[in-house]
Nucleic acid binder design. Structure first.
Length: 838
DNA sequence: ACGGTTGGAACT
DNA sequence: TAGTTCCAA
């Protein structure tokens, strides 16, 4: 419950922007991608105005249909809805166009019911991938909008289709520089604003609104609101122009009021809440309409206190409310009843977590471990893909993996429903690892579930239980600190991987018990168990822990910094959010670099990535793998393996390998992780100096350019003993001269020595504290300051690396060249693609 | 025995 | 912290 700011003199200007019928609209946009551009140009306005949303499969028919519509304009306003999984009773509606709503079509109807109520309704299906709904279209569409809205002020992405803006600064600036009263023309869209409390029944509404907007004798707050309304109108037009989405907005003095207002006039309209109208708005408002009060709390207010409208709340003292609902909620209730809310606009354009889930209602409930594994693998695959995408585009790493499930258990006696415990563990990157961990989490949960229930079970066959819902999610996503470099991140990842493996291992060994199919497989990605490797890990662990703590403790700060500092760093502030703009050198740079570490990538990684690359042509990570393994093994292989319970990773536990692995621990590092780290880093570095381009232009460029990368050149020069100081295309405004590695390596070597002498290892900070191992704090401080880049490594450093690594690096120096093949879309997409070649 | 999928956050 | 619960779109 957000803490309310006590003062009621809130002069902030907050906007809430809500995209109209978002899913429906996005189908329109979706279609646009597959239309010849000229035709799209001509048809899209009609699509938009009609809310007509032909799905891909209906495309041809719909084009004809639309042409018909053009000849008979009176047919416009076609009712439409989006459904998912239409096989059963026509699928569930998740979005309904405004036209269809007039027929009484409602969300959470089945497609068949909608047809009954409104026979002519057009039903469109949500895309399905991996047997589940795929919302990526909608996420991306939402991102498009956010990138536009974020131009005018602090922006918080509140959901897939909602945004809060803090326009206080923009409005104040405008009031000083170009107050509405001095404007010759007021934007038509702004004139269509609804201003609460303004009499709209009068003659010329627009004139009334114009007068209100331009009143020179207005309250200062109203003037600011007027500015906000103008800004928002402009933004909404911009959104429409650039994305063809319409949206509705509320402009008020706080989030709560703005949110309320945005819903008052839909679609494609905006509503202003002057301070003087707040009471009139709230008092008669049903309590359940308020955000946060739509659920149990609202019900409690109704049934326990007899509060049916917000106005009814006014009679209760703050103390009374606190006594009833606790100090926080009570205060909050007291405030919101008076229109007071200090809830701040957060300045966050990116989600804090990613999840992928599916329900298996009723008869579809999963009854075997094998089927659970299958679906978990699908879910994890999607999650992993999105995590890679996040890393690639935003340099963020998730740290926690959580599994949720819903289960039923029917047996002779009553209880048919029990809570399935959610389980979480540290997240390791790599699809196979996520899948492993997820399955282990599930089995730990299942064991607990059944144990608490008191059931003896057969191995993998259900004895009365069924899984009705599975979801896997990744959270604790933190941005990679910008000061760190690729090498650091490599070790960080190792540290993370190793650490998490240990943790999950111990946990799973303890808890998974007889149900565990894969046993200690959860550790199979664990590699740096060698003494020297461990030393490296722990060295880095110090830095890592520190960085982690910092970014955790000030996550808000770092977010806003990330966003706001993007200005100086990158020419367009929206870049941070809208995806990094890659330029030619970037496009191949990460690829080349990653080859170093990837030469021994195991099959499952190849498979995993090549699969992703089919769908994500714009990701540098996936592009790289696609380049490397254009004809790698089919995805079926891994799926089958997993389904039969065979891990794609070596089944031997790394714990077992410890004694005899020697330096060989090193080569089995997770190449995936390294590769990604580097890619993200490089993208960051390079992108910071690049002027923003149209996304489509970027993609074209990316696919074209295959030059020699700077890192590659560096290593080449290494091999010929000539040291190259790398110029970062002038973009890295990194001021501190980055030291070469030699000193660090010396320390590492010293570390090996020390370790071999049997002296205690340095442990990661938190552990060190707990265990109170002896350690030199001076040493720690030194190491914390490490900062270097992969391409600044002194060649002599190579000799310090374990032989296996050296071998890999040298092998990599000979670049694999691959014939360029343009990425092809699906056949249907290809068919509709403009023939204009580029 | 279901609206489904996703995300955020408070509380313990 | 991990896990649960609630809320919302």
């Amino acid at each position: 419950m957000p803490v309310a700011r006590p003062e009621s003199s809130d002069t902030r200007i907050i906007a809430h922007i809500d995209m109209d019928c978002f899913y429906v609209q996005d189908e329109v946009i979706h279609i646009r991608k597959y239309l010849p551009s000229e035709l799209a140009e001509e048809l899209m306005p009609m699509f938009t105005s009609l809310h007509l949303i032909p799905s891909l499969t209906l495309l041809t028919r719909s084009i004809f249909f639309v042409v018909e519509q053009r000849r008979q304009p009176h047919l416009r306003g076609f009712p439409t809805a989006v459904v998912q999984y239409n096989s059963w009773k026509g699928g569930g509606l998740i979005a309904v166009s405004y036209e269809a709503r007039k027929f009484g079509v409602k969300r959470s109807m089945r497609g068949d019911e909608a047809k009954k109520v409104c026979p002519q309704i057009q039903l469109v299906q949500v895309p399905v991938a991996r047997g589940k709904a795929d919302l990526n279209n909608y996420r991306n569409a939402g991102s498009e909008v956010v990138s536009i809205l974020a131009r005018k002020g602090r922006c918080e992405r509140a959901s897939i289709d909602e945004v809060y803006l803090d326009l206080t600064d923009a409005a104040e600036t405008m009031l000083v520089e170009t107050p509405p009263e001095r404007l010759d023309v007021i934007d038509e869209e702004a004139l269509k604003s609804h201003v609460l409390g303004l009499d709209e029944d009068g003659g010329d509404i627009k004139e009334t609104v114009r007068n209100w907007l331009c009143r020179s004798d207005a309250d200062h707050r109203d003037k600011l609101l007027a500015c906000g309304a103008l800004i928002v109108a402009e933004l909404r037009i911009q959104v429409l122009k650039e994305t063809e989405f319409t949206c509705s907005a509320g402009i008020a003095h706080n989030k709560m009021l703005a949110k309320l207002a945005s819903a008052m006039n839909k679609p494609a309209q905006q509503t202003v809440v002057p301070f003087s109208s707040v009471k009139g708005l709230l008092d008669p408002l049903p309590i359940k309409k308020m955000k946060q009060l739509g659920g149990k709390l609202g019900s409690s207010l109704q049934s326990d206190l007899g509060v049916n409208t917000v106005g009814d709340l006014l009679q209760f003292s703050e103390e009374k409310l606190q006594e009833r609902y606790g100090i926080n909620t009570g205060t909050w209730l007291w405030n919101i009843a008076r229109g007071i809310s200090g809830d701040e606009v957060e300045g966050r354009l990116l989600p804090k977590s990613h999840g992928s889930g599916k329900t298996f209602p009723g008869p579809q409930a999963l009854k075997t471990i094998a089927s659970v594994k299958h679906w978990l693998n699908e879910l994890c695959e999607e999650l992993s893909e999105r995590l890679l995408s996040d890393l690639d585009q935003h340099k963020r790493i998730a740290h926690t993996l959580t599994l949720h499930a819903r289960a039923y258990k029917h047996s002779s006696d009553s209880e048919s429903h029990r809570k399935f415990p959610s389980k979480s563990c540290p997240l390791r990157y790599g699809t196979a690892k996520i899948q492993e961990d997820a399955i282990n989490l599930f089995q730990a949960g299942l064991r607990e579930y059944l144990r608490l229930y008191g059931v003896k079970t057969l191995e993998s066959q259900s004895s009365g239980w069924g899984i009705t819902g599975l979801s896997i999610s990744a959270s604790k996503i933190v941005a990679i600190p910008s000061g760190t470099c690729s090498i650091t991140k490599f070790f960080q990842t190792q540290e993370q991987s190793c650490f998490s493996s240990k943790q999950s291992c111990s946990m799973l060994i303890q808890e998974a018990g007889p149900l565990s199919c894969s046993g200690t497989e959860g550790c199979s990605g664990l590699t740096l168990t060698e003494p020297e490797a461990q030393f490296l890990n722990e060295e880095i662990g110090i830095k890592h822990s520190k960085a982690h703590d910092e970014s955790c403790s000030s996550s808000k700060q770092s977010h806003s910094m990330l966003i706001q500092e993007a200005g100086p760093l990158s020419p367009s502030g929206t870049e941070v959010f809208s995806g990094l703009k890659l330029t030619e050198p970037q496009a191949e740079f990460p690829n080349a670099e990653s080859r170093t570490w990837h030469s021994k990538t195991n099959l499952c990684h190849q498979e995993e990535i090549s699969k992703t690359s089919k769908e994500q042509g714009t990701s540098s990570v996936t592009r790289f793998f696609h380049d490397l393994y254009p004809s790698s093994s089919s995805s079926k292989l891994q799926t089958d393996q997993v389904e039969y319970g065979t891990s794609p990773l070596p089944s031997t536990s790394n714990l077992d390998r410890i004694p005899d692995s020697g330096v060989e621990g090193f080569p089995s590092i997770d190449h995936m992780e390294i590769q990604k780290s580097f890619t993200a880093e490089d993208v960051r570095i390079k992108s910071s100096a690049v002027p923003s381009l149209e996304k489509r232009q970027q993609r074209q460029k990316i696919s074209k350019d295959k030059g020699t990368s700077s890192i590659l050149r560096f290593f080449q020069s290494c091999s010929s003993s000539s040291l190259v100081t790398e110029e970062k295309s002038g973009s890295t405004k990194n001021t501190e001269a980055s030291p070469f590695l030699a000193p660090e390596i010396l320390r590492l070597r010293a570390g090996f020595q020390t370790m071999q002498d049997g002296i205690h290892m340095l442990a990661p900070v938190e552990e060190a504290t707990i265990n109170s191992h002896e350690q030199s704090s001076g040493q720690i401080e030194q190491r914390e300051t490490w900062n270097y880049r992969i391409d600044e490594i002194d060649p002599s450093v190579m000799e310090e690396l374990p032989p296996e690594i050296q071998q890999e690096v040298w092998a990599w120096v000979r670049p694999h060249k691959r014939a360029h093949t343009a990425k092809q879309g699906s056949s249907i997409a290809h068919y509709f693609l403009p023939a204009k070649g580029s």
